[in-house]
Amino acid sequence: MDKVIIAENLSLAYSKDETIINKANFSIDSGSFVFITGASGSGKSTLLKSLYGALKPVEGSLVVGGVELRGVANSKLNFLRKHLGIVFQDYKLVKEWTIEKNIMLPLIINGYEKSIMESQVDSLLKHVRLKHQSGKYPLELSGGEQQRVAMARALAHNPILILADEPTGNLDDYSSQLIWNLLEGANEQLKTTIIVVTHHIPEAMKVEYKHYHIEFGDIHEVV
C-alpha cells in the first residue's frame, strides 16, 4: 500500500530552546483512518500544522503526498495544499461570505468551472444537512452548523488527505455524530486518508483505524 505520509527522524520546534516533536519515525498508508492523541501541550496540533506546511521540520524528513516539506518551495507547498482538506476546531470560515461561497473556496482555488462549483456545493449542502440554511452567513449558524460547513469545504475538491484538529471539540452530540459519520464516509466511500487530532476517540467507530499517541515529544503507535 502506498504511503501518504512518511516521517523519518522528524523534529519540530517553535524555537531553538524547546523541541516539541523529537526524532519521530512513522508512516501512514494511503486510505487509512488515523487518530493522534496526547495530553494538552503534547504537540498534537504542532504535528498537524507540519503536515500542511504551516510549520517546517527543523530536523529529519517529512514527506506528505510525495512532497518533502523540509525546505519546501512555496510553489510545491501550494500544489500540495490543493489536494488537502483541513478542518479546524474554530472552523476558520470567512464571515463575510455566504456558506455556499465558503464551501466553494477550494474549488475556486483549483480553477473549477462555475457550473461544476454550484452543482458540487448544492450536493454538499444536502450531504451535511444544511440545504435549508442556504444563503446564510457563518455567524447566523450555530457552532455545529459552522463545523458542518467547514467539513463540506474540506470535502469539496475530493482531497487525498483530510486533516482535522479536534473537529468535534466544541459541538453538541448531534453535530459531533454527523461530523464523525462524514469523516467515516469519506474514508470508506472515497478512500480519503483521514487524520484526526483528538483528546477522545469515539467508542462507536465503524471503520478500522490506527492510533498514534504523543508523549514527551515521542510519537508511538498504540496497538
Rank of each mutant, 00 (worst) to 15 (best):
66 G>M: 11
5 I>L: 09
201 I>P: 08
57 P>M: 15
193 T>S: 04
13 A>D: 06
190 L>W: 13
198 T>C: 04
51 L>C: 14
222 V>M: 12
200 H>P: 00
204 A>S: 14
214 I>S: 05
10 L>Y: 09
58 V>M: 15
139 L>W: 04
203 E>N: 01
148 R>S: 07
70 R>M: 09
22 N>K: 15
92 K>V: 12
176 S>P: 01
92 K>C: 14
42 S>R: 15
185 G>W: 06
194 I>L: 05
210 K>Y: 08
164 A>R: 03
99 I>A: 03
108 I>A: 00
57 P>F: 14
14 Y>E: 01
158 N>G: 06
125 L>W: 00
178 L>I: 09
151 M>F: 05
217 G>I: 00
110 N>D: 01
118 E>R: 02
76 K>A: 12
33 F>K: 07
163 L>T: 02
164 A>W: 05
54 A>N: 08
141 L>D: 03
212 Y>M: 02
176 S>D: 04
46 T>S: 08
32 S>K: 15
148 R>Q: 03
199 H>C: 03
69 L>N: 14
167 P>G: 00
98 T>K: 10
91 Y>G: 06
87 V>L: 08
179 I>Y: 01
91 Y>C: 02
195 I>K: 00
75 S>L: 15
74 N>F: 11
24 A>I: 13
6 I>C: 14
145 E>P: 09
179 I>H: 01
169 G>V: 06
162 I>F: 04
135 G>P: 08
85 G>V: 04
28 I>V: 14
51 L>Q: 14
183 L>V: 05
164 A>N: 00
61 S>Q: 13
12 L>C: 05
34 V>H: 11
47 L>I: 07
120 Q>T: 08
24 A>N: 13
156 A>C: 05
135 G>A: 11
66 G>D: 02
142 S>N: 07
178 L>M: 10
60 G>A: 15
201 I>K: 12
71 G>D: 08
120 Q>D: 01
108 I>Y: 07
101 K>P: 05
138 P>W: 02
201 I>Q: 02
156 A>S: 02
223 V>P: 04
97 W>F: 06
18 E>F: 13
139 L>P: 06
136 K>L: 13
115 S>I: 13
92 K>W: 09
18 E>G: 05
150 A>Y: 01
84 L>F: 12
124 L>C: 02
168 T>Q: 00
198 T>S: 08
10 L>T: 10
15 S>N: 15
109 I>F: 12
73 A>P: 11
144 G>F: 12
93 L>E: 06
48 L>Y: 10
3 K>I: 13
76 K>W: 07
192 T>W: 10
6 I>Y: 06
208 E>A: 15
209 Y>C: 11
77 L>N: 00
4 V>I: 14
49 K>A: 11
35 F>Q: 10
23 K>R: 12
140 E>Y: 02
186 A>E: 04
154 A>Y: 00
42 S>G: 06
209 Y>G: 08
207 V>Q: 11
202 P>K: 12
66 G>V: 07
175 S>P: 06
219 I>Q: 03
11 S>E: 05
54 A>F: 10
77 L>K: 03
46 T>G: 08
170 N>E: 09
28 I>W: 09
72 V>L: 12
45 S>N: 04
150 A>D: 03
